[in-house]
Amino acid sequence: MDGKQIPSSDSSNRQDIQRRKARSLLLVLAVGFAVFLAAAGALNYILQPTTLRIAVGPTGSEDHAVVEAMAEAFADESRTVLLSTIPTAGAAESLGLLGNGKADLAVGRADLSMPSDAQTLAVLRKNYVVLWSFSGSGGKAARKKTAVKIAEVADLAGHKVGVIGRTAANASVLRVILSGSGVESDKLAVAQFGTDEIEKLAQDRTIDAFLAVGPLDSKITADAIAATARTRGAPKFLSIDASEAIALRHSRYEAEEIPPSVFNAKPAWPEE
Rank of each mutant, 00 (worst) to 15 (best):
I198N: 02
K236Y: 05
V190G: 10
R230E: 14
K200Y: 09
E199L: 13
A209Q: 04
A191E: 15
L211S: 09
D196S: 05
A222E: 05
L211K: 04
E199S: 15
F237N: 11
A212W: 06
G194L: 03
Q192F: 03
T228F: 03
L216Y: 07
R205H: 11
K236F: 08
F237A: 13
R205Q: 14
I220S: 02
P235L: 13
T231A: 13
E199Y: 09
R230C: 10
R205I: 12
V213N: 11
K236E: 15
T228K: 01
P235N: 13
D217S: 02
I220Q: 01
F237L: 13
T221G: 04
A229F: 12
P215N: 11
R232S: 08
T221P: 05
P235S: 14
F237T: 12
K219C: 04
G194T: 04
S218L: 05
E199P: 00
A202K: 08
A202W: 01
A227R: 10
D208H: 09
I207M: 04
T231H: 11
T221S: 08
A212C: 12
I198T: 07
L238K: 08
G194Y: 06
K200D: 15
I207F: 06
D217I: 06
A226E: 15
A189L: 13
F237Q: 09
Q203H: 08
K236H: 14
T221A: 10
D196K: 09
